[in-house]
Simulated assay, not measured.
Amino acid sequence: MLISRVLASGVVFPLYIDPGNKCAEWTAVSNAVTSNPTMPFYIIINPDNGPGGKANSQPDSTYQACVSTLRPAANPNVHVLGYVATGFGSRASSAVEADVQTYAGWGAAYRPTGIFFDEVEGGSSANLALYTTYAAFARGQISGAFVSLNPGTSIASSYYSIADQIMSYEDTYSSFSTNDLVISSSTPASKQAVILHTAPATLPTSTITTLVHTEGIRALFITPVSEADNPYGSIPSYWADFVTAVGS
């Protein structure tokens, strides 16, 4: 029997898009997942700056029907991550943990497999302790939870020991340089993800080659949409080609 090798690098997608009628707005993403069973996908869902609704509530029927389309049995390498804001360490811990608990209480067919902690501030030992607590809480609420932290920039190596993935860069394409990445034995590329928006209208294949095939980062997302136009509110025009380039 031929066993396909799982790719080391994959795609992260901040899918801050309403699924639409019959999940139509997510079709291009779910199709990519289905068509690339050896590629890791890290898909961040964000119903309403978090899970939305009251604490411990279920999502609306659209999310219940559509999240499961992102997690086909043929691709166990897909992580659906629930968005949780942390306010750069200033948001009340009870509110952060309530969001995690709400995602954890969703039905099994549409429950996220991990948590994406946004607005991470890594400038103090107190915050390290705080995010250590959040990571442990997520894993205690969701069995086998994948924990992603988003400082949007390089962060102390100690954070790598508490997370499965670090969003080590999130900004405009033009401002990015590979020198912005700190890659070492304690801050490995295999745990780093990069998000670039306001990218060229033509797929920047050389950047993909450098980040994925040379540097070996864990996940990448590139979109030509600018910050002013909400880069995470639509599917990139070259989405299918982007996925192909990452997996080539």
Results as ranks from 00 to 15, higher is better:
residue 19 P to I: 07
residue 108 A to K: 12
residue 195 I to F: 05
residue 239 W to P: 05
residue 213 H to F: 08
residue 18 D to L: 09
residue 174 S to R: 03
residue 151 P to E: 04
residue 157 S to T: 11
residue 149 L to H: 03
residue 45 I to W: 00
residue 191 K to T: 05
residue 243 V to K: 01
residue 59 P to R: 01
residue 78 V to T: 05
residue 49 N to D: 13
residue 42 Y to V: 03
residue 108 A to H: 06
residue 38 T to E: 09
residue 208 I to G: 01
residue 159 Y to E: 04
residue 132 T to Q: 14
residue 208 I to E: 05
residue 174 S to T: 10
residue 127 N to H: 12
residue 166 I to V: 13
residue 247 G to C: 07
residue 96 V to M: 11
residue 7 L to Q: 14
residue 215 E to R: 15
residue 241 D to G: 15
residue 73 A to V: 15
residue 75 N to R: 11
residue 135 A to V: 12
residue 139 R to V: 13
residue 232 Y to C: 10
residue 16 Y to V: 11
residue 39 M to I: 12
residue 4 S to T: 15
residue 85 A to C: 10
residue 8 A to L: 15
residue 186 S to E: 08
residue 63 Y to E: 04
residue 99 D to Y: 11
residue 214 T to S: 15
residue 156 A to M: 08
residue 202 T to H: 06
residue 91 R to C: 07
residue 204 P to E: 08
residue 197 H to K: 06
residue 94 S to M: 10
residue 50 G to K: 01
residue 56 N to T: 04
residue 130 L to Y: 10
residue 207 T to G: 07
residue 146 F to T: 10
residue 164 D to R: 02
residue 67 V to K: 00
residue 78 V to G: 00
residue 157 S to F: 04
residue 168 S to F: 08
residue 102 T to S: 10
residue 133 T to R: 15
residue 216 G to T: 10
residue 29 V to E: 01
residue 110 Y to C: 07
residue 71 R to V: 11
residue 7 L to A: 15
residue 155 I to N: 01
residue 80 V to Q: 00
residue 37 P to I: 15
residue 62 T to I: 09
residue 127 N to I: 12
residue 7 L to G: 12
residue 3 I to V: 15
residue 119 E to S: 07
residue 14 P to R: 04
residue 164 D to T: 05
residue 155 I to P: 02
residue 236 P to T: 11
residue 104 A to R: 01
residue 66 C to M: 02
residue 17 I to K: 01
residue 200 P to H: 02
residue 132 T to L: 09
residue 52 G to W: 00
residue 134 Y to L: 05
residue 75 N to M: 13
residue 133 T to Q: 14
residue 74 A to R: 13
residue 16 Y to D: 07
residue 236 P to A: 11
residue 120 V to G: 01
residue 243 V to H: 03
residue 114 G to Y: 02
residue 72 P to G: 05
residue 223 T to N: 08
